[in-house]
Amino acid sequence: MSLDQRSVRTTAADSPDTVRPAVEIAALRKSFDKLEVLRGIDLVVAPHEVVCLIGSSGSGKSTLLRCINLIEPIDSGRILIDGVDITAPKVDVNKIRRRIGIVFQAFNLFPHMSVLDNVTLAPRKVLRTPSGRAAEEATELLARFGLEDKRDEFPDRLSGGQQQRVAIVRALAMRPDLMLLDEITSALDPELVAEVLNVVRELAGAGMTMIIATHEMGFARDIADRVGFLDAGRILEQGPPDRIFTEPTEVRTRQFLDRVIAAGRM
């Protein structure tokens, strides 16, 4: 399914029970040694829905995203992607990862490869797309995000914003059904943030299902269908951005938002 075909947007609110969730997380727990980072996460994401995760540093946002992509093994609970339990013992991890794109805070481009090779590596090696076609598709995607002239550059010659956009394109080249974005602008200079966020807006507009961990509250409010507040390893409160940002029910959410406002990040 190509991105452009999914222009019709459905949210959880539109059709609560009829659509099979894109992601369904139940009672997910994860600890590092003695530190319990996720203490029972329940989260349902509908197809084409954009969920933003907010919460203070160390609350477990990154860990949750890494668990969904199976980069981190989980201790207990279940994660269903499109109805398939990916935490079942015998699943093919590589196959599942293909359908989930993840972009990290640090760009993690492959420094020894050109932009084009960064983008085509996985399609060529994993999907076995012939190099010619992989290059064509990559060039098209790069053009869509204003990167066509950077095709043959190496990552160290790009700005942070360009690198991060390449990282997004690299994930998109696998035609994922779900994108996980982990604070993808927090390593960027302020003037570069907008270009990256615009890319994400375009993806949301095209109907990509996304879970986004972010410190950019304005952006979350603007783009999210739903905002989840993560606190001490639980999703303490979730709902439409307008409600969460203006009248949160939980004291901890209010405290967090007050701190964010005091820090001038909203």
């Binding site: 980069i71 293909r98 989930i100 794109g101 993690n108 590596l121 996985a122 994993v126 994930a171």
Partner: peptide, 9 residues
């Protein structure tokens, strides 16, 4: 991690 997240073995 980046390579594995793209589905590479």
């Amino acid at each position: 991690a980046a390579a594995r997240s793209l589905g590479l073995s």
